[in-house]
Design a protein around this nucleic acid. Sequence first.
DNA 1: AACGCGTGGTC
DNA 2: TGACCAAGCGT
Length: 401
Amino acid sequence: MTVAVPPAGRKPRLPRTPSAARLAPARRPDAAALTAALLGWYDRHRRVLPWRAPAGVRADPYAVWLSEIMLQQTTVKAVVPYFRTFTAAFPTVRDLAAAELDSVLRLWAGLGYYARARNLHACARAVAERHGGVFPGTVDALRALPGIGDYTANAIAAIAFDVPVVPIDGNVERVLTRLHALEEELPGGKPRLRALADALEPAGRAGDFAQALMDLGATICTPKSPACVLCPWSEPCAARRRGDPEGFPRKAPKKEGTLRRGAAFVAVRGDGAVLVRSRPEKGLLGGMTEVPTTAWSADFSPQNALDHAPGLDAVAPGWRRLPGVVTHVFTHFPLELFVFVAAVPAGVDAPAGTRWVAQGDIAGEAFPNVMRKVLAHAGIDPKPAPPDPSPRISKPKRSPR
DNA sequence: AACGCGTGGTC
DNA sequence: TGACCAAGCGT
């Protein structure tokens, strides 16, 4: 279905009479009216978040950038404690640039998508070196920095610099495809979505407008059971009028990955030290810490697992397989790990490419969650990955239905 | 362009 | 309870 998008700044003609209104074909909603309704709603219901400035105050670009990177494919609830930890450890982008990559990875551990942490560090250094420690205020300059794609460049430009652009994330995607009942499947329909976003009018409040769209998507226009009765755009929403808001956005089904298996080896010394190694910089869980494992493959069998773990038979005389398996689901494949444990005599050297981590340092290692599960399965408490999910943030809960 | 890349919450 | 999803990016 082809949808004509009116040029920004011009309103579609309104029908003259009520009867004409009823008979008229669906019209593009009036951009100025949409803006007024959305910003009015935002002024009453905006969420209070650690990286947001008070109403009427422009937010700190560093805080906006840091939060936007953390929020990529990640929930607000998960991000808040990490955001507090990072701003405490690195008050400015220069502090972050001066830090070792390894300390950044350690603080990031548990948040997922670890390439973000490496790009975060690289971006901080680029800002420090290329821009004198000050974030640039244009979409193009932001877009050129590591870890900043189309969405994030537009979000930072709008929120931190009030550049009149509309960032499109999952929330905005949902809100706009519903508002227009866009039939075209995503991601193919993204260019049309871009046109719909560009037809909106932030009216001099680009930052508020962008965050209003996201708050609307996060609290009202939710994927399941949207609260249309509370929505400022309820009246013009084509999907609601059609009685099927949940049906948007239209998406092509995605295929699932096949199960992989492997073995993980937990070698524990008498003093509590554990044998670990670092994963390669690139790829799955890049740069993170792990206990030695076999390769993970669809045809793995635990029978001769040690044959596929060179050097480990020399570390300890008796490897014992624990009952059960550790399961973990990555975005693109599920994983089952068989866990082997061994008590290692004092004085045994770590094989090439591995190292001993003292008992007290285990919590500080950059273990991804799958490895924390393995350690827990072996009876070792890896300590909570995320910082304390301490002070509550405002939660605009609505009554259950 | 399609895929690789984590984790936690929700129903 | 497994499937789906959440403020995407890099290749």
